[in-house]
């Protein structure tokens, strides 16, 4: 029996359909990682600090989304697009407020102190957020009944052991489309607007930007707000896609997204998107073709190997020593 099952899986794995399905799953997962990774990479770019609480901001975002969902359902709102829109907006606003607050109380007072201090408070904030949610929401997983079901059948193939179907679910379409739209909007914001220009200036030389009249503290706050808003979107997507959340999801997703940011070249926006996609794909394909247990090992190994050959990541600029 076991041998037959193994044989069947082997045959399935060799089909084109299986590959395409993994690709779709990987891109979906990568989109979520990419959205979170942007928050890491932007904060690192502007103040050179790893915001370890960012993963937990993402978790808070998904809890806020769940709360809003429950309220909407209790109020008897049934129009799904309306619910989604409201959940997204409310989650973004409230999560941004959390992001802003964390920066204001835990990082800004330590600006200009030694380099490790904000790193330590970041870890502290991460623990605070996790425990806060654990206390107020309980430690058990919170389920959300599937909201968006169904999908498009892209391919259908037959093997000698049975049929195999490639499905692109509506949820996956929503996740990928939202990510693409947000990333495009975000890149434009950074490249074209006053705020984006100020952010890029602070990134290169905050002191000089300040001497030219740019309010650096406010620019940094807005960076945290933007990162948190994107993390909130990721939180909503995660909630809808997996249907269960708990207070601990921020840790795992945070580490993955951080890895994605480093892989893509920390400080680089396109790098964060690419890194997220890469980590999502590596994880999915490794689970699909080799073993689910070792998917994290695979992702981190590839990170290590990449950093050996490209120390500043895929798209990162090497730091130029100023003489």
């Amino acid at each position: 029996m076991a041998i037959a099952r193994e044989r069947r899986r082997g045959i399935v794995k060799r089909t084109m359909e299986y590959f395409v399905q993994q690709l779709i799953n990987g891109v979906t997962l990568g989109s979520i990682y990419g959205l979170i990774a942007i928050g890491y990479t932007m904060v690192y770019g502007i103040i050179g600090m790893i915001n370890f609480a960012h993963g937990d901001i993402f978790m808070v975002g998904s809890f806020i989304a769940l709360t809003v969902f429950m309220i909407m359902l209790a109020l008897g709102v049934t129009a799904l697009p309306l619910i989604l829109l409201i959940v997204l907006i409310v989650a973004m606003i409230f999560t941004s407020a959390w992001g802003w607050t964390v920066e204001r109380i835990a990082y800004r007072p330590l600006r200009g102190s030694f380099r490790l201090a904000p790193l330590i408070t970041a870890i502290g904030m991460s623990i605070v957020l996790q425990n806060f949610v654990q206390l107020t929401q309980g430690a058990r997983v919170k389920p959300l009944p599937p909201q968006i079901q169904g999908g498009i059948t892209l391919m259908q193939g037959n093997t000698d052991t049975g049929a195999i179907v490639v499905q692109l679910s509506y949820m996956q379409i929503i996740i990928i489309a939202t990510t693409v739209v947000l990333m495009a909007a975000f890149s434009t914001l950074i490249a074209k607007t006053e705020l984006g220009r100020a952010q890029r200036a602070c990134e290169q030389d905050a002191k000089m930007a300040s001497l030219l009249g740019v309010n650096v503290d406010r620019t940094i706050s807005l960076t945290f707000v933007m990162g948190a808003a994107l993390a909130a979107v990721a939180g909503v997507m995660f909630l809808l896609y997996y249907g269960v959340i708990d207070f601990y999801i921020g840790f795992v997703a945070g580490v993955k997204a951080f890895t994605a940011a480093v892989l893509g070249g920390i400080g680089s926006l396109p790098g964060a998107m690419l890194g997220g996609l890469a980590i999502g794909l590596i994880e999915t394909f490794w689970s699909g073709y080799f073993s689910v247990e070792y998917k994290d090992v695979a992702a981190f190994s590839i990170l290590a190997i990449t950093l050996i050959f490209l120390p500043s990541g895929l798209l990162g600029k090497p730091e130029v020593e100023k003489v």
Partner: peptide
Amino acid sequence: IRLFSGMTVLENLLIAQHNVLM
């Protein structure tokens, strides 16, 4: 020299007018 070396010459001058533009 402390220019924003990665930004264009024009952008360097626009940053200096950040407050007005903002």
